[in-house]
Design a binder for these strands. Structure first.
Lengths: 150, 150
DNA sequence: TCCTAACAATTAACATGTTAAGTAATATGC
DNA sequence: GCATATTACTTAACATGTTAATTGTTAGGA
């Protein structure tokens, strides 16, 4: 095999392709988020809180796809910015419950439409049908792969 | 909309789905790589070098999907382990050329089959046809999205 | 009740992601 | 041939990813 053919193999490998595709998509969001002083991960956390309301750290981490140690650090930053608040769960002293503040909700309401507009562009460029098809395939991949090796 | 419906929207959003899918796949590789003292990114760099032969840092970064500042740090580690060597390009004093050492190639030859075996399991679990379909869709997404907003 | 296991969150340590700025070498236009 | 821009790589600073260990709390069983 030539070096080009070998590299082509890597180029078609699932982890790489998923990484590249995600990077292509996120490249469109990052400049807008950065202009608001947000990282991609912080934006995920804020969105989940605005959608779900008050949530304990474990569920927040799960929904935002962020590992607990990362979340702990981020929550301090977000709380420092006044966008969220945390309190201890009275029914279970181990849990911390987090929610967006009024200021946080206003901030989210400012950023949200800009994110939605960018997402629209991506959907338009790719096609709504293909997007649905892709998302379904990715869901199926996740399901089958998680079940397989456990 | 209920909180569940709002969360469902996030669950179907492209960046999140791509992230989750990639995580599902990588979760199968990481334990094996860790057992060899490798991170996922280090393994990508070693594989690219073993496939392409000597390569300058820019192309290496591109093929391994790693940003140049990250690569600079990693290359020091990999060189410290004796798996790769770097030398300056005589035709262009700006470039650094990297290649796997003999020891590195032996190491890669040890890890490679284990990675291939895991990949096989994933392909089997998901289906070869669906995998090809998925990779094609991801490639197309990347192409169309990159062209759209530039 | 008491001991232990399990759980939730956190801390620590190291590796990578991300952007901006810096350094050295090369390319370009005049 | 020289000033300038561009390129390749690096450094710096901060944020997150990743694993392991720690702390405090709750749950279960003898």
């Amino acid at each position: 095999m030539t070096a080009e053919q070998l590299l082509e193999k890597t180029n078609r490998s699932l982890p790489i392709v998923l990484l590249r595709a995600r990077e292509s998509v996120m490249a469109h969001f990052r400049p807008m988020l950065a202009a608001h002083g947000l990282t991609e991960q912080q934006w995920r956390v804020l969105r989940v809180l605005s959608e779900a309301g008050e949530l304990d750290a474990s569920h927040l981490a799960h929904h935002a796809c962020i590992l607990p140690p990362s979340l702990t650090r981020m929550l301090k930053t977000l709380e420092g910015n006044g966008w969220i608040v945390g309190r201890r769960d009275k029914n279970d002293g181990r849990r911390m419950l987090f929610s967006a503040t009024e200021e946080g909700l206003r901030f989210i309401a400012t950023v949200s439409p800009k994110g939605a507009a960018i997402y629209e562009e991506i959907v338009d460029a790719f096609g709504e049908d293909k997007l649905r098809q892709l998302v379904d395939l990715l869901d199926e991949l996740q399901t089958k792969v998680n079940g397989a090796a456990k």
